[in-house]
Write a protein that binds this DNA or RNA. Structure first.
Lengths: 221, 221
DNA sequence: CAACAAACATACATCCTTGTATGTTTATAA
DNA sequence: TTATAAACATACAAGGATGTATGTTTGTTG
């Protein structure tokens, strides 16, 4: 039996035991396909058969790399979340900004810029917010999914406290109250941007919305 | 064949052709059961069999009252949404408040108070936000689901404009920018309240969060 | 009082989906 | 060079879920 025809691997032929890097490539292919199928069909209607087919493999390959669908889901999420979080955090805690409020603003703008520019990032957020049901085995996944949101509150609280210390926060403003307000604002902006599909309307305005939001709490006045 | 035993209706016996009000009662029973099962299992894993069983009827009854699952979903939503929207709108547009900002604040607080007090309301929101995948036949449902959010923006824009006219809005604040900020804030608050399950922590603080949010845009200063 | 239709229950056929068990190559270590 | 196990493909069993078709009562209308 030939393992490939014209250089293209085909199914229906057993050709296995690839090198480790080949296996890694297959794994990544499965994760990418899972993202596409999750986004197109929703998580629950995404069968492992569809995902395997889109990846050009069989369910056997999927079951080899992942225990079940929820583990695949987690991999899809990590693949995108980890680098994004690292990026926004590095801005938020950058020493380049004299005013902590500038760091918050830049970090938020970068987040929504990536969300707007990078389709795979947007796909993952749409999957997690609009195309996944958090029950049963996914109930535990939800906690992981929400952890960044919880952490985000703690982070901007620290920044707002710092801003208060440096006197750039409007006088009379409680930094913790300000942090919670920004927290809700950011979450809402994310959800509305995904849910309402405001095309160019909101997309271009998000930056100015963020500027306006931050301007309200800049001091000392 | 007896239609009931000891006053309790039983299955396995055909007893049908009830009066119209009896039929309405079973319909409502099905909607209530659907809400419970949707909330427990998620929409996609909620089979019509489970829903029928919980309602004490068979799938035949469900198919008689509703075309399919998505129509049932819509009924569950309307059952709760309509009265809630009417309630918050009546506060928002009430003549009792001299300051439009007070009306906005009261309306928001009432919304979150109901969300906190009324478990069925909370269940419906949790179903729609955390336990439903908006794809395929539910993609069209999503538009209906998001319409209140869109409408809400238009409503508070009007109120903020009114506040600007009456001079209760902080000078220099664009009413439309303020409206969008409050819009995102509200959406985020709703999502975070449901997602992060902040128990007593956030629940009691929501009211103060709203007050703090509105205080930032009260003028004239 | 007879016919009709509302309001369901039952039964049937079909199609997926998942999990696991079992092949089958081939890189790699001994 | 041979044995082992990685990296898959194939096959099998079983359990649902949906939609529809068809029964079966009984309130209601003429």
């Amino acid at each position: 039996m030939r393992a490939d025809i014209g250089g293209f691997p085909v199914q229906g032929v057993v050709l296995v035991r690839k090198t480790r890097e080949e296996a890694e490539k297959t794994r990544k292919q499965i994760v990418d396909s899972a993202r596409a199928v999750f986004h197109r069909c929703g998580v629950s209607r995404s069968t492992l058969e569809k995902i395997a087919q889109e990846a050009g493999v069989t369910r056997g390959a999927v079951y080899w790399h992942f225990k079940d669908k929820s583990e695949l889901f987690f991999a899809v999420r990590e693949d995108i979340f980890a680098p994004l979080l690292e990026r926004t955090d590095s801005i938020l805690f950058s020493e380049a900004y004299a005013d902590p409020l500038d760091a918050i603003q830049a970090s938020l703008q970068e987040f929504f810029r990536v969300l707007d520019d990078c389709s795979v990032v947007r796909e993952v957020f749409e999957i997690m917010i609009l195309r996944c049901e958090y029950v049963q085995e996914f109930a535990s996944v939800q906690e992981e999914v929400n952890r960044p949101a919880i952490d985000f509150l703690a982070k901007i609280e620290r920044m707002y406290v710092r801003a208060a210390e440096r006197g750039t926060l409007r006088t009379g403003l409680d930094p913790f109250a300000a942090a919670r307000d920004t927290w809700a604002f950011t979450s809402g902006l994310l959800h509305l941007a995904l849910e309402c599909r405001l095309e160019e309307n909101l997309a271009t305005d998000v930056a100015t919305l963020i500027v306006a939001h931050m301007a309200l709490r800049r001091g000392p006045l």
